[in-house]
Design a protein around this nucleic acid. Structure first.
Lengths: 205, 205, 205, 205
DNA sequence: TATGAATGAGTTTTCATTCAT
DNA sequence: GATGAATGAAAACTCATTCAT
């Protein structure tokens, strides 16, 4: 019926995969449901991507690429830890509205139960850890704080935390709780450098 | 063939469910695989528990009850934030070795894609948030630190973080990274009260 | 818990079977659903009756016995064909309200698909054919009408018709249609004897 | 293994469904038994028809279409009520031999216990009521008999009766009884117009 | 008499995947 | 490139039935 370019079909499938994953969840996402949403035959999922999971990973990659470009720019503006927390908060809200969190979390959830997926997911987290590390290094690198909290570890902590936040946001309908976490971070960030002061002898408690 | 007490069979099924979930993941866990592992007929899963998910939740409940008892005791020993971080680190290691993290994380992962499960999982997280809050309240309640970091919010942060840690531990084979996070916490904890000092005017960066 | 007499339990099961059949239909009637409604263990269905179908037949027998007693009395009042049609109409309405039609029709429907049941059902129709035949014989026996329409055949026709009526009443929500059938019979009955007049030569149509 | 045209497979499935329903009854008719009889995979029942019941209804529709075409022609030949009864008798015998009665009655029986099926079955009875009404209207319309026995009501009575006949034929192995019913009708039909004569005063009985 | 545990066979349904066209 | 037919495996779940107690 339709003589479309390969590229266009792949594109439609990726969009449909992302959409289905976001609206139906991984459990409701199959070659058929994706294909129906894309308006094409489900065999194309295998023809173009080799399977359902590779297609979903392609959707994740597209989502990640978009976010990475946008977030890199946003993070580049931050000069202090406070600004960085502000940026992270904005990033979280953008990700949430854009459905990226849902997309990502659904795949993480699926990966938990499927070793093949697991590997792919973890690989795709590395660039983000690097990104956060580089950003932290730029902002606090060389400072006494960086000596106490090495950017690499801090990056890993941030990503781990963000993963938990994503999960909770997804599981729990109550958004105020996750928002409170960013509020907490905003209150701590400007004080973080205090952590590097000389520690007075502690009075017995 | 052999008529056993209900309790014993239920017990075997719960153990088998936990074991299957830990070794095969949620994707490999079905009434059949559980029953095979328990050495009984798969219809018993429905007879005794009404379905697969209720059985898995029963397994989670058993795991949670055991952990809650043990961890409550461990946490009760902690008098300072440092000791609390130490306790949390020990808890994490115990949970990891005991397979509790895998069990819990598999169910969280499954819950992501299944709204019915989601509800149950979130409900089962509440007692843990309460537990952490109470513990924090006992240790830092009334201090200036508690004013900056309200135990309720901190508890939520801790659980969120722990959730992220569980996930990463489960996804990523490399355990040194998660261990590093606890090391970070151990270095920060004794300095946390510095955060409450008066903030000197910041030099322009 | 309850030490009841065998008779009482059988009774409760029979009532429960009738009730379940009426409200849930044969498809929703199993040893378990009946037992639950009777408030006893489903194994008792087999202990007391040997299976689900024998129990349902027992329920049918009880229903039939009640109806036969009542209907025999009602039919005995009828002296003419008109009165007999009136009585039949009343019987239909009573059966409908009493749930007998549902009970019977559900079993007939089940019997259609199950040869073992079929036999039992047919056997249980015989006394009714006899009853109708006897009644017709009393009312029109010896008359010219009986020569044209032998009571035995007429009885079989009536039962067949009643079976069809039961079925349609059960399948079709619109009761006015079946009511119209009885209206038709009421109009024909007083004229039936006209059928026995000498047939005039027919004009070509 | 072998890729055939959709039409051919659908056809085989419909034939197999009709055959299974006729020989095994609704209780013995499942996606598996049908597919085995059709020599194909049982998933095709769902692929092509969406379920077992839709397939069975398709089989009924095919059977009905064939019968409607043939019976319409046969009924069109009848000019008098006698001829109509003859035609109906022939129709009954044809339906019986062709297995249509079994097919239809099995589905009616199944519909009794299944509300979803019920609706479909009743809908499929309407065209037959219309057909009988039209035929009666053509044959006795405008006559005094039609005033006494309105074709619409008579059609409903005929279908109800035929339903009962189908049922009894199906339940009871003894065909002579149902044959006797048609004999009865054959004797009454030529006399039916007598019903419209003026009713003489009845002697007290 | 009554119970509840247990079983095996059966059901519908969905899925990833392959393949001829 | 794209389609629709086909397949086999697997899922959750229900049922009649048996049996030790």
């Amino acid at each position: 019926m339709s003589k479309q370019s390969s590229e266009e079909t792949r594109d439609r499938l990726i969009e449909a995969a992302a959409h289905t994953l976001r609206t139906e969840g991984y459990a409701g996402t199959s070659a058929r449901t994706i294909a129906k949403s894309a308006g094409c035959n489900s065999a194309l999922v295998f023809y173009h991507f080799g399977g359902v999971d590779p297609l979903l990973l392609a959707a994740l990659d597209r989502s990640s690429a978009q976010r990475m470009a946008a977030h890199r720019e946003a993070a580049a503006q931050a000069r202090t830890l406070e600004e960085l927390v502000e940026a992270a908060t904005a990033i979280y809200r953008t990700d949430l509205e854009g459905g990226h969190i849902t997309l990502f979390t659904e795949l993480v959830g699926a990966g938990i139960a499927r070793p093949e997926l697991r590997k792919e997911i973890v690989e795709r987290a590395e660039p983000w850890i690097d990104f956060v590390e580089q950003t932290l290094d730029r902002v606090i690198g060389g400072s006494p704080l960086a000596a106490l909290l090495p950017p690499r570890d801090l990056a890993y902590a941030a990503i781990t935390f963000y993963l938990g936040v994503n999960l909770f946001t997804h599981l729990d309908a109550d958004r105020t709780r996750t928002e409170a976490l960013f509020g907490l971070a905003a209150r701590v960030a400007p004080r973080a450098r205090l952590l590097t002061l000389r520690l007075p002898r502690r009075r017995e408690r």
